[in-house]
Nucleic acid binder design. Structure first.
Lengths: 199, 199
DNA sequence: AATAAAACGGAGGGTGTCTCCGAATCACTA
DNA sequence: TAGTGATTCGGAGACACCCTCCGTTTTATT
């Protein structure tokens, strides 16, 4: 009987089914890392995380070559929720309200998982390629929100969406007082108000 | 012959003149640290700094028990310049203009000595006592500026000065793109504009 | 069951932090 | 100017973390 063959690109020879233990370890590491980061901040020892996950250091580093890669993986789902929220707000709310709501949500997310904040800014020194994926999602979200608000005429034409984003990420980094979320939310309104067109 | 004695507080017994080598070493360390931080960022090896200063690690740690203490000491003079600028601006410019000018200057200072930025926010986890002195100076400066602007009626009554400060420090941390100073300056105007009273 | 690709794991080398304490240095006194 | 005790120096060393390397083990596949 003639059988079907999946078409293979010649450049990509037969792909093997990924090993189940690899997948399992990857998830275990992510699980442990999430707890560890939330508990003890973003510079927990990676060797410790590996041990708690019942895995050798080598395994951890093979899956996540850098600390940043691990952090990004841990928070990828949160970032996707933010991106989803953008779409929903854009459909159901007037432009400026949507922008404001999203910014507040952003603050909330960072307040909950405070570790994501230092991870969001690239390190001093140079624009690295880290967090490429997550950053693109976030940037896409605020870009869409601001563009819509500009089009509606409720926001200055010359507003750079990333300016807002930078401010948001920034305040989230400064955790000098326990009430910083309130401060951040007040700031959202200042930013919105300061972004309206000059009359 | 009867001699004079300096009156001594009993609680504070005779103070000895500080040793000259201690003073000299302290200054040498500061000098080297300043260069090292500016050149290679804020996580240069402290042992390296000690060696470059021709000093043992113990000496460095005795003078500056933590890395943060050293950083603060290095940038204390810059902070004092900022505080001085506040006084000058307050005397020579109208309230809002003074506030704006100072904020822009703040951005410039951080742009020049980028290391001060990560040093300005307390670490995640809790409000530590680090940078107590410097932070007080900066906070005092913006507090004065905002209070004056509020009194003149050009700024909302309910504006918290520290909200602005947080935003400033924050954006300075996010160095994702090489043009962040421009972004920061645009943001200053957004913040000012958003801080005006609602009509 | 045999085979080879893929993943594992942990020992180990490199680097950074910070302490500890005998040795060296200095301010003060007579 | 020499003596002396307080103060500071210095660097070896204990510890922690990062990350790699490679012999061993597991797995998908034939």
């Amino acid at each position: 009987m003639q059988r079907f063959f999946m078409p293979k690109k010649p450049s990509e020879p037969t792909r093997r089914k990924p090993r189940t233990d690899a997948q399992r370890n990857r998830e275990r590491i992510l699980e442990v890392a999430k707890q560890a980061f939330t508990r003890s901040g973003a510079n927990t020892s990676l060797d410790d995380i590996a041990r708690d996950a019942g895995v050798g250091a080598g395994t951890l580093y093979r899956h996540f070559p850098t600390r940043d890669a691990l952090i990004e993986a841990v928070y990828r789902s949160e970032v996707e929720k933010l991106a989803a929220a953008e779409r929903k707000f854009s459909e159901t709310m007037p432009p400026v309200a949507a922008l404001r709501a999203w910014m507040l949500l952003f603050v909330d997310y960072i307040a909950a998982k405070h570790i994501i904040a230092p991870a969001l800014n690239t390190f001093v020194g140079g624009p690295s390629k880290l967090y490429e994926g997550s950053r693109a999602q976030i940037q896409g979200a605020i870009d869409a929100l601001v563009k819509r608000a500009i089009k509606s005429g409720d926001i200055r034409k010359d507003l750079d969406p990333f300016d807002l984003l930078r401010a948001l990420i920034g305040v989230s980094n400064v955790a000098s007082t326990p009430d910083w979320p309130q401060s951040a939310k007040r700031l959202v309104d200042i930013l919105i108000s300061g972004s309206r067109p000059v009359k």
